[in-house]
Design a binder for these strands. Structure first.
Lengths: 252, 252
DNA sequence: GAGTGGTCTAGACCACCCA
DNA sequence: GGGTGGTCTAGACCACTCG
C-alpha cells in the first residue's frame, strides 16, 4: 500500500511532549527561567491541559522543572549532591553538622520503629531536625532515641526545644557506636513533611532510614525525608560525583 | 452560628481517599488480593475515576499497590531489601553475584559519563547487566568501561553476548580498586529500561550511579536503574533492617 | 469478546501569589 | 484582581490480558 510507515507502537502524546520539552529546556532555556503558563503551552502543542501536565509532572519528578502555585513553572537548577556516608560512621550531631535540631518531645514510636528499637509501647525521645543545603531546607528527620540509650540525660534543664534536642544528641554520643545501617526508598511526603520542605503533600521524597547500633542493640533510629526533586544522595569516599541520569543515554 | 466546625484547610479529595484506602489495605486486604476495578471503586467513593486514580497512583508510588493493564490492581508485597553496600568495596561481578551479565558492545558514552571517565568521544565497553531478587528483575545497569581499564582484553574470543560481558568484568577485577562512590537519585524509566523492568515508561526508578576509582582515575562507571516501587536499597553492615516508612508516623 | 488499567479531552472551580 | 498551578468532573477511546 502507498501509505507511509505507521508507527508500530504509537508513543503516548505526553511522552513525546516530554521529549520535546526536555530538548527545549536544554537548548532554549536557562536555569531559573519561567516557562509559559500551562494553558498557553497546552494550546501551543495542541493538547489538553491535563496531557501537558502529565509531561510536566515527569519533568518535575526528574528534577528538571520546578512548579509553584501562583507563581509559575521554572527551569530547575541541577540537583544538589547531599552526602550521606563519608566512609566513617558517626553518631548524629557529631562535628559541625549540616543538621539543625528543632525540638524534642517524648512519644510512643509507630509499631515498626518500636519493633526495631525493642521498646514496645514505651515512650522514647523524639528529636526533630532538618537539614540545610545551599540555603534551602532539603530534608527533615525524626530520630527515635530510647531512654535507655541516654541514661544520664538530665530531665530538668532544657525540657524541650532545640536545646533539649542538642542535649539528647550529646548524650547519645557518649555511647560507643558499633555500626550503622541505612536504607533508601521512595515515598511521598505526608502533610507535615510537605509543609516543612515547602512542597505539596504527596510530593516524591527519598526516605532514608538509619539504624545506629551500640552495645549489641539498636541504640537509635532515624527516619529522614529528603526532597526527591532537588536532592541526589551521595555515598562513599569522594563527595563529588557529578554524573546525572540521562534518559537518552546511549549516543552510539 | 450554629454550624459545625468547618475544616479550615479542606483536604483534597484524593488525599482523603488515599488515607481511607490505605487503612482498608491494612485491615481488609491481604498481599496479592485483587481490588475492585477503578470504575467500581470510583463509584463507591462517589468521585470521578481520575480522582480515584490520583490516590491509587500515590499508593503505587509508595509500594502499597501494583497495577497492571488488562489484569487489575493488587495489593503489593512489602518492598524487597536490595543490598548495595556491604561495607567492603568490590568490583562489579565479584563473587557469586546477583547480577546477570547480558551483553557487551562498544559505544560512545553520553557526555556526562564521558566527562567522568575522561574519554572524550572515544568508544568504551558498554556492559549491560540486570539484577534479580526473589525471582524478579529489580534493576538494570549500564557499566561503562574505558578500553584503558581492560588493556589485556582479547578482542577475539567472545566478541559479544554474555560471555563477552563476563570477560570484561573479569579483566576489570585485575585492577586494584582504590575506592568507589555512589549516588542515588529519583528518575523515571525510559522506554528501554521500562521494558526490561516490566514497567511502563515513566515509572519512578531509583538511579544509582557508581564510580569505580583505580590508578588515580575513574576506571569504570555504572548507572543502575532500580524499580522504585518494589525496591528498598540498603547500605551498611547488617543487611536486614526491616523498617518501612509510615506516613502517619507519630503515635504519641 | 469482555474486562482491565492507560491515555486524552474540554471544560470548571479553587488556593495561592503578587502587584 | 488577575494570573498561576492544583483539583475535579464526566465522559471517550485505546492497549492489553485472559478465558
Amino acid at each position: 500500500m502507498g501509505t507511509t510507515q505507521l508507527e508500530t507502537v504509537p508513543e503516548p502524546k505526553y511522552l513525546h511532549l516530554k521529549t520535546v520539552l526536555s530538548e527545549a529546556l536544554d537548548s532554549e532555556f536557562s536555569v531559573g527561567e519561567i516557562l509559559p503558563n500551562e494553558r498557553d503551552l497546552a494550546a501551543r502543542f495542541g493538547v489538553a491541559r491535563a496531557t501537558l501536565r502529565q509531561a510536566l509532572e515527569q519533568l518535575e519528578l526528574e528534577g528538571r522543572l520546578q512548579r509553584r502555585r501562583g507563581v509559575g513553572t521554572t527551569v530547575a537548577p541541577p540537583r544538589v549532591g547531599v552526602a550521606l556516608g563519608t566512609g566513617r560512621q558517626t553518631w548524629p550531631g557529631t562535628g559541625d553538622d549540616v543538621w539543625q535540631p528543632m525540638d524534642c518531645e517524648r512519644a510512643v514510636p509507630p509499631a515498626p520503629v518500636a519493633a526495631a528499637l525493642g521498646t514496645g509501647t514505651e515512650e522514647v525521645h523524639l528529636v526533630r531536625r532538618f537539614r540545610m543545603s545551599q540555603g534551602r531546607r532539603v530534608a527533615t528527620e525524626l530520630l527515635y532515641v530510647p531512654a535507655a540509650s541516654v541514661p544520664d540525660l538530665s530531665a530538668i534543664d532544657a525540657p524541650s526545644g532545640p536545646a533539649r534536642a542538642r542535649a539528647v544528641l550529646r548524650e547519645l554520643q557518649r555511647l560507643e557506636l558499633d555500626g550503622q545501617d541505612r536504607a533508601v526508598e521512595l515515598g511521598s511526603a505526608g502533610a507535615e513533611d510537605a509543609k516543612e520542605l515547602d512542597r505539596l503533600p504527596g510530593s516524591p521524597v527519598l526516605v532514608v532510614t538509619t539504624r545506629f547500633a551500640a552495645e549489641g542493640r539498636t541504640a537509635a533510629l532515624g527516619v529522614a525525608t529528603y526532597r526527591a526533586d532537588t536532592c541526589r544522595l551521595t555515598f562513599g569516599d569522594t563527595p563529588d560525583v557529578e554524573i546525572h541520569h540521562d534518559p537518552e543515554r546511549r549516543a552510539s
